[in-house]
Amino acid sequence: MELKLILLFMVFGAVIAVKIEDLLSSVIAVGAVGLGLSMAFLVLKAPDLAITQLVVEILCLIILIRATINKDLPLIKDGRWFFNTVATLLFIASFLMFAYFALLELPDFGKPIMRVAGSYIANGLAKTGAANIVASIILDFRGYDTLGEATVLFTAVIGVLAIIRKVGRIKK
C-alpha cells in the first residue's frame, strides 16, 4: 500500500518535471522523484540502496541547481501538437502491448528465483565474515562486477575533466 502511494507520487513528480516551464522548479521536481525512490527502497527493506540513492540524488541536485540557476533556456511550444500526440499514443500503446506479454513471464513480485543468490545468502557470513550480506556480495562474490562499475565511474571522471579542463586550451 505505501509502495503504491510512493509510486503514484513519483509518477506525479515526473509528469510535473517534464511539463513545468521554470527550469529550477523542474529540477526540484526531479529531486522529489529521487527522494520518493529512496523511500520506496526503504519500504522494500533495502537500506543500502536507500542511503546510496539519497546521497547521489542530493549531489545531482546540487550540481543541477548550480548549472541551471542562472540559465534562461528558451522553450519550444509551437505547432505540430497533432503529430506529437499521435506519436506519443502510438508509443504508449506499443509499450503496453509489449509489457503485457513480457510481464506474464516474470515471477511474482517479491518471489525471486533463488538459484544463485540462495547459496550466497546461506554461505555469505561463513565464507567472507562480513555481517552485511550486501557488502559480502558486491565486494567478494561479485567483485568483478564492482570493478567494472568502478571503471565506468573512472572513465566518466576522466571524460569530464578532459572536456572542461583549463590548461592546454587555445586562448581566443
Binding site: 555481517a131 567478494d140 571522471v157 575533466l161
Partner: peptide, 25 residues
Amino acid sequence: AGIIPLCNIAICLKVGAGLFAIFAA
C-alpha cells in the same frame, strides 16, 4: 571480513575524490 573493508576504503577514495573533482571542474 578480510579484504572487504579495504575495498570499501579504496572505493570511498575513488568515488569521493572523483565526484569532488567533477564538481570543482
